[in-house]
Nucleic acid binder design. Structure first.
Lengths: 214, 214, 214, 214
DNA sequence: AATGAATGAGGGTTCATTCAT
DNA sequence: CATGAATGAACCCTCATTCAT
């Protein structure tokens, strides 16, 4: 119904269910994610994004300042969501194990649902950081900061080995999950079913926790 | 033929007094490392490399087929050295802890001596794997394979928790070290003195081992 | 038909209370004058004009066929007015000195009231003549023609030196005034008060007349 | 002979007498003059310049920073030459009439030899001044300054009417010549033979001098 | 009449690579 | 070996214009 209201005033150019109006922006972002994942940021042309989104070339520049702005927008919107999740988990009264399991689960779920997105958003930022907008590094640092506070709290309760600073713990945890994603990407291991994936998730969290616990 | 051409690269083309032949090639590679690290592979021009090496940019094309060939040469030479190290450690009769400590130590030393090199060589490969020469991925996979065999051997001796497959363990270990490097790069932590660095190295190895041990 | 369409531009399309119809058109033209003067014809975008006029840029295309049409409209409306003035002066029974003084005065007055307009309308035409609509050159030529006839009449009465053809005289006179405007634009001289301006005007006319008189 | 020395080392791509090495820069500038005059600065593409010069597209960017830089280079090199001429005339012990005749003659000669050049260099600067590099306005102002000093000297000797400030006189003189050029360009008058041209030159100088003399 | 989203050709610029010397 | 002039394809971005509402 909603669709009809939007799409039927006059004839549609293509009868596909294209999002109208403001939806175009999202259409472009989604297309960009696919294209960046497929060919890399530098390996694709802006026209690839437009083609994938089935919009005119120029429209990309209607919504974004530049190709880089498209990438930054993806980064920032995704990381903002992720940081929001972290902040909610931080508030929770629950064992660290549960929180970390949920963080890992969220990232792996996201990967299962949209692997390209995660390749672009997780695997590029930590490393290309230096070459991108400072805002991106800030978001990464913020996220690590929240995880660090979770670790610090656990440490304060005496559950962490004293030799492991919370910040190091945070980086190690995040990199563990990255390791899984890297493994998926290079085909070192797979997890087709949600069950397998949950298993892998639990392994990683367990290894990490055993590693840092007092 | 191909082999011959390859071996020429390493030996001198002319046994003249000058170190210029092989010397210039190394000059260019070293310059490339710096420039790639500073501006990224895509962010720099071939002439930037030549400028840094203080040679004419036409010369880059005497020693390398293309800009990408420069990058691949760096990757391959470094990873070949690293894999050689891994293979020697693999043969050693020593506790896993020692071996891993030496691996981590070697990588962190290399980072201290030439941070740009490691940023380029370690941090680019996992991520950009997909877009690079298959040969690079092979090297990465080989290296992981050696570490995996170390883990498998330890598992065979019953020292590893059964829930952690050797391959996952290998990736987790490598990613731990990467986490440190990432931390250095984004400035989350520093280790100016060799002492601090050794400390960090031991923490990471300890956390990892505690995490995976039975 | 064409005539009708043209005349509509001047009269109101709808005789409603609003001055919006014709008003908006003038709004856009005035804005265009400012913007052309500020950034040049090629240096501005249609949206700059619309922004200056505070209308949506689609509206520019209601009133004008194209960006060039906006420029041509300005040219033509202004030059038509100027030619009209020249024709009225031509009919007058008065000494050439008076006529030229009034021409120069009119142009300098116009400059004082709307310098941007004159920069666009006077200073662009001679130069860019070649690249513009032929209609614009025709107007320029017409205007020069009227002045030339004034000169010819004076010559016929024996007041002009014989060595100076009326057409050359016309061009020299017009260029004298242009010289003043150029001087204003580059800041070589100023004439803030109407008095100073009238003085400058008289100097120029005097120099010109002394130059051509028999 | 000189040609042979340069052009015959290996086979030429085209057997035309193309200037080699540093001559390419001049080749491009000369082509740019033609193209700018023919289609206007904004009306031509950089590739038009390259085509006209019969060089590869990219070579333009080997010698010039940008399209605008090409234009500025033309302006500056020509105006520098013109200013040099003015400075030499300034030093001369000769009646003003002679000096002005030589200035006008030089400009008209230049126009006859290379009309496109003069259209670009003389007719664009005075007006587009505002939109171009400040350096261009400076050159224009410098040139006017030299002429102004010539006028001032004449005034000091009591030969100029007191009502005409030297600076105004300088602008009027320059604009007189511009008027001739404009007339040529719009086809209002022609001067095919050097004789006709000299005649026109003398008329203009005479009119100007009679106009300003005491 | 008025809006501004959508279109897409056009063109400036970059830069990897080749080549003549 | 070494140089850097020369080449030209590739690609980002701009912006005049159209169109649906």
């Amino acid at each position: 119904m909603a669709v009809r209201r939007f799409s039927r005033r006059r004839s549609e150019r293509t009868p596909s269910l294209k999002a109208s109006a403001a939806g175009k922006r999202k259409l472009i972002l989604d297309a960009a994610v696919k294209v960046f994942a497929r060919k890399g940021y530098y390996g694709c042309r802006v026209s690839d994004i437009a083609d994938e989104a089935k919009v005119a070339y120029g429209l990309v520049y209607h919504y974004f300042k530049s190709k880089e702005d498209v990438l930054n927008s993806i980064f920032q919107e995704r990381w903002t969501v992720f940081i929001e999740l972290l902040r909610q988990l931080e508030k929770l009264e629950a064992p660290l194990a549960d929180k970390l399991t949920r963080i890992a689960g969220a990232l792996l779920d996201a990967y299962r649902l949209n692997p390209e997105m995660m390749e672009v958003v997780i695997m590029e930022i930590a490393r290309n950081a230096k070459f991108f907008d400072k805002a991106n590094i800030d978001l990464f640092t913020q996220a690590m900061g929240v995880i660090e506070r979770m670790m610090a709290r656990e440490a304060a309760e005496g559950h962490l080995r004293r030799s492991v600073p919370p910040r190091v713990a945070a980086y190690l945890f995040f990199s563990s999950i990255e390791a899984l994603l890297t493994g998926f990407v290079v085909g070192a291991f797979t997890a087709r079913s949600p069950g397998e994936q949950a298993h892998l998730r639990d392994q990683v969290v367990e290894v990490f926790l055993k590693g840092i616990q007092a």
